Amino acid sequence: MRDSATEIANLLYRYAELIDGGDLESTAALFRHARLKVRGGGEPIDEAGILALWRANVRIYPCGTPRTKHLVTNPIIEVDEAAGTATARSYYTVYQAAEGFPLQLIASGRYHDRFELADGVWRFAFRDYSLLDLAGDLSAHLTMKVNV
């Protein structure tokens, strides 16, 4: 028997695992069939757009990672099995440590996601990536300035 909520939660956690591993291409591929709303407004962007944004703004260290840990917590997942759709609301907290940058909390916010079931597999359909609630020192993580 399918456990759709677990499959969807695993997508949330897979995102964190991939981004923390520095695999921007595989992270962006999670959104191949989705659109993402980003800070600053405008039209939602696609997989290529988010990958370009990350490549331009996320610092990747010699170890091949951004030296971050994204914690995705408190997922509230609502599934409509008959329609093959679902939504999730979750929190994220990002920690980082790098040379000259001691371990610290750098960001906290929310993800609002929509999912669709296609060929028996759950996938992202939409992510509101704009819900940054609290920002700490992001200078060792991003090349751009972020205002909350």
Rank of each mutant, 00 (worst) to 15 (best):
R114C: 11
E99Q: 13
L134R: 15
A56M: 07
V79H: 08
G40M: 14
Q104C: 08
H33R: 13
A107Y: 03
W54Y: 13
E47W: 03
V58H: 06
A56P: 09
T27C: 07
L12G: 15
V148K: 12
I76D: 10
G21H: 00
S90Y: 10
Y15M: 10
G42W: 06
R59I: 14
Y91D: 10
L18I: 08
D20N: 11
R35L: 12
T65E: 00
S26G: 00
F115T: 10
F115S: 08
V121P: 02
M1I: 01
Y129V: 06
G41C: 11
Q104D: 09
S4D: 11
E25D: 15
G64F: 07
G100N: 05
Y61V: 02
E43Q: 14
F101W: 07
E78N: 15
K145Q: 12
V79F: 07
A135P: 05
N147Y: 12
V58S: 06
E81R: 07
A52V: 08
D128I: 13
A28G: 08
L51P: 09
V94N: 05
R67Q: 08
I8V: 06
L105M: 14
P44S: 10
E25N: 03
G41R: 08
L117E: 14
A34F: 08
A107I: 04
L53W: 14
A52I: 06
Y91Q: 11
E116P: 00
L134F: 15
T65A: 03
I77P: 05
A48F: 01
A83S: 15
I19L: 07
I76G: 04
L105R: 15
L117P: 11
M144Q: 13
I106C: 06
T27M: 05
L131S: 12
A9I: 03
A82G: 06
Q104S: 14
R59N: 11
E43Y: 03
A98E: 09
P44A: 13
A97K: 04
A56K: 14
Y92D: 04
R67P: 01
A29H: 07
S90R: 05
T85N: 06
I77S: 04
D80F: 11
G41S: 07
E7N: 06
T68A: 04
